[in-house]
Design a protein around this nucleic acid. Structure first.
Lengths: 215, 215
DNA sequence: GCTTGTATTAAACAGTTGTTTGAAATTATT
DNA sequence: AATAATTTCAAACAACTGTTTAATACAAGC
């Protein structure tokens, strides 16, 4: 044991700090040397354990998703026994906390948001394994609120509306920090923002539901 | 005249292709050599005309905003004579077309979206000169729909909801392209998406307006 | 026609990048 | 204890980066 920090093996430490640095800097601007420096391992370790910077990135991304689902599981929301409005509120709260939890997941979700905004080859697998299931769950809830089977395109547009209202807190974080910092000041503020999005969306959806019955 | 493409002077060509390359690659991944190659000028020209890569980026960003406002002016929406619902619909349509117009502005808005998602030093000036005025206009329209003077925080949250519903089409373009390409297939599809966001938002806002009167 | 100031060029610079190397250290196996 | 396999290391590599240089080409002014 040559390193004082070597409680975790080098492989795991690399993965962990890769998430950190890739999230802060993006794939290209992140340097192998910076990751290794923080992980307290030699520069050559990346190529020894991961073959290349690119596969390290891919594995870091997968790791980030695993952590996100571990810390913020969707289990409770999948329960179809609950009223759909409550499930939607829970879904949005879960999503927003996932996005804005700086203490645990901030870096993970930032890494993911980065990949969505500026995709690499790794995106396709992520869409398959992580995004499609989440979208399916949200689509099911929306369909339930809208009532009688609705045009698929309308469900998709509503889904994007809700998705966008949450994601803006991550993607436009720089603007919110400067103009409306009180909206995300602490956990209770985030919770209030989440509830606002839920109320906003439920109000819109139930209006659509009415039109749906009439038409 | 040593260059065949030198209808525009070198300075302007640099600015134009800087927008293109910075939008495609981001600030760091974009190379001065690539910009100069496309602009058909010598590598040294960037430092000759702009002192550094960084000031070229700043100027390219300002140029992108000027072009966006030139091609999609907000003039008609500022008119306070129109009903606020109509103004909101126009605002959203304007914004979404700005974001998704691949033929003219796609690169400009991508550059701007990039700067928001991953800010450099240039962001602060952009917020002052471009974002705050646009937010003020949208806030005014929202306030008008909500009726009797509303809590400022609620207006801000509604503003972010609408902003986010539009911006998701840019930031999550990679996902939409793969999962729901028909939503942005052509101009009429974009228009339909814009109208959906407007209806969704107006439905939510008018529900809030009711609660506002009662409370 | 000469001078002055601007524009353009090829070449080089100094720094950083991901990756490779081959030896040394460590651990596991017999 | 001796051998084999794995892990770690400092050093170097080749490629690429933004920037500078100093020489050249060009136009305008007198």
């Amino acid at each position: 044991m040559t390193k004082s920090t070597a409680i975790e093996p080098a492989f795991n430490r690399l993965l962990q700090f890769a998430v950190e640095v890739f999230a802060e800097c993006g794939f290209r601007e992140a340097t192998v040397r910076e990751i290794c420096s923080r992980a307290n391992v030699n520069v050559a370790s990346v190529n020894y354990y991961f073959r290349s910077k690119e596969t390290l990135y891919t594995q870091a991304l997968a790791f980030a998703f695993r952590e996100a689902n571990r810390l913020y599981p969707l289990d409770a929301i999948i329960n179809r026994g609950l009223p759909p409005e409550q499930r939607l509120t829970m879904f949005i709260g879960n999503f927003l906390h996932k996005l804005l939890d700086d203490s645990h997941l901030g870096l993970h979700s930032k890494l993911i948001a980065r990949e969505i905004a500026d995709p690499t080859k790794a995106l396709d697998e992520i869409i398959e394994t992580a995004i499609i299931p989440q979208f399916a769950l949200l689509a099911e809830i929306i369909q339930q609120i809208l009532g009688t089977p609705t045009d698929k395109v309308i469900v998709q547009r509503c889904l994007l509306c809700i998705f966008g209202q949450c994601l803006v807190f991550k993607h436009s974080r720089s603007i919110i920090d400067r103009l409306y910092p009180e909206l995300i000041a602490d956990d209770s503020a985030i919770q209030a923002s989440a509830e606002h999005i839920a109320q906003f969306s439920i109000a819109a959806l139930s209006r659509f539901a009415k039109n749906n019955k009439r038409g």
